[in-house]
Amino acid sequence: MVTHKLIYDEEMEEPFTLVAIHSSEEEYKVAYLMNQHLNTRFKRRRIDIDLPSKSLMITFPIFDFLDELNYAQFHLVSNKCRTVEASLQSSGGLFSEIDSEKVTNHFLLPEFKKVDFFLKIYSDFENVSLQSLVSQINNIAQIVSAYVVETETIKSKNNLIFD
């Protein structure tokens, strides 16, 4: 009797390109600006990306665009999520209640804390000119900078699974 053994050596992942974007604008404004300048049609998903934390559910807004002409799929996602926890402390006196707020920043990719947004690009073919795309993004006045991130250096790749 012959037995066949399957060995699973490496992870099967779809190749993607990741562009880091630095901007102080809100996520909907960045999507709008990219729609205006890049001739795209980013639309916000009804359901955001949820990442469970210790006691919180952290959500990151995501915008999608499917380019059927170039067989490419684009995802624009915020890297930062800010949570505010309010607490009320009383020391027992009549007017001695203390209000305090704890602000915590959470990141989709913690190793890139200075990046505001990521543009993830899936493409089966090399139809998307990456140099041209990055230069067009950099030409938008409200965007400080944009550059390609080497995907091999990303430690938390599982946070980039959006489906």
Score class of each variant (00 low, 15 high):
13 E>F: 04
85 E>A: 07
7 I>Q: 03
126 E>P: 06
110 P>T: 14
55 S>G: 12
19 V>A: 01
35 N>L: 00
42 F>N: 00
159 N>M: 10
84 V>A: 15
9 D>S: 15
90 S>I: 14
66 L>E: 08
48 D>T: 05
140 I>K: 00
53 S>H: 15
17 T>E: 05
102 K>D: 07
139 N>G: 02
31 A>S: 02
158 N>K: 12
72 A>E: 13
61 P>V: 12
137 I>W: 04
21 I>M: 01
36 Q>L: 10
97 E>K: 14
22 H>F: 07
119 L>E: 08
72 A>G: 09
47 I>Q: 07
2 V>W: 07
82 R>H: 01
101 E>C: 06
1 M>H: 10
113 K>T: 10
41 R>F: 11
68 E>F: 06
100 S>F: 08
32 Y>L: 04
3 T>D: 14
91 S>Q: 14
151 T>L: 05
156 S>A: 14
13 E>K: 05
23 S>H: 06
140 I>T: 08
15 P>Q: 10
150 E>R: 04
23 S>C: 13
143 I>T: 08
69 L>G: 07
90 S>K: 14
64 D>W: 05
9 D>F: 12
146 A>H: 09
54 K>F: 14
38 L>M: 07
151 T>C: 03
113 K>C: 07
162 F>K: 00
26 E>I: 12
130 L>F: 07
103 V>A: 06
139 N>T: 15
56 L>F: 10
126 E>T: 10
159 N>D: 07
10 E>V: 06
56 L>G: 01
120 K>E: 03
19 V>I: 09
82 R>D: 10
55 S>T: 15
131 Q>G: 05
126 E>I: 11
89 Q>Y: 10
78 S>N: 07
77 V>R: 02
82 R>I: 15
25 E>L: 08
